[in-house]
């Protein structure tokens, strides 16, 4: 059921919103340090799959295993705690808290996890350097460009030293050049820190930064690894 050595695996997920099925028997797995692209047309259930895998929503049926633990059996508080400690997130837009400075945004996951402010902001700055946005540390998100903002978001996702980063159309609001740069920095940083990335995208050139790809169609994930 669960592919050997996988960090996060889902089996036969089903999820219905109202009467429309979003997931209809989807399976998925990702290994430590692996970048997996989840592709598919819009409305195919990509984002729903990502939200289920990240424990943001619970599937109607099916199992999700993370690091030997059943995510599907956890309480909301336990899943929240897991998201704080082990997961990182990058979304398409609107994810930075507009009133916090960039460095405070990056430090936010650490602080939510109980790290002291000074330490959290120091760690945040090193990640911002990695993503080449250290110069905008004390600016507010409204004052930086889209590409910079997205890199700040990537830095934030990495700052909490997660095991898995969930990236939902991380380049969706960017032009090709900025998008490529964000993807390059994200995948390089993730690989060097041995962080797995679940990358939801409908763009092939973004998916090309992955190690492997999974297609979701009509709520079913065609994971070649699973088929094998």
């Amino acid at each position: 059921m669960t592919p050997a050595g996988s960090l996060l695996a889902a089996h036969d997920l089903r999820k219905t919103y109202g009467s429309t099925p979003a997931l209809d028997g989807a399976s998925f797995s990702v290994h430590p340090g692996e970048v997996v692209a989840v592709m598919g047309p819009s409305g195919s259930g990509k984002s729903t799959l990502l939200h289920c895998l990240a424990g943001i929503i619970t599937p109607d049926s099916g199992t999700i295993t993370y690091d030997g633990r059943k995510l599907s059996a956890m309480s909301d508080a336990e899943r929240s705690a897991l998201r704080r400690s082990d997961f990182g997130f990058v979304f398409q837009f609107g994810q930075l808290v507009p009133e916090l400075t960039c460095v405070e945004n990056v430090a936010l996951p650490l602080r939510l996890n109980g790290t002291r402010r000074k330490d959290a902001e120091r760690t945040a700055r090193t990640w911002m350097e990695r993503l080449e946005v250290e110069d905008i540390a004390s600016k507010r998100p409204g004052e930086v460009s889209g590409g910079q903002g997205q890199r700040v978001a990537v830095a934030r996702a990495l700052a909490g030293s997660p095991k898995v980063i969930f990236a939902d159309e991380p380049t969706g609001a960017l032009d090709s050049l900025n998008g490529e740069r964000v993807m390059q920095l994200l995948t390089e940083a993730a690989r060097s820190a041995n962080v797995a990335v679940v990358l939801v995208t409908h763009e092939a050139r973004v998916a090309a930064y992955s190690d492997r790809d999974v297609t979701v169609r009509d709520g079913r994930a065609r994971d070649l690894e699973h088929a094998a």
Partner: peptide, 24 residues
């Protein structure tokens, strides 16, 4: 028929990955 397309997609993506890697 979907399998045919999926196999082809994978092949395309495989090549794109190689090119992306080379580009990097």
């Amino acid at each position: 028929a979907g399998d045919v397309l999926d196999a082809q997609r994978s092949e395309h993506l495989r090549l794109m990955r190689i090119l992306t890697d080379r580009k990097r």
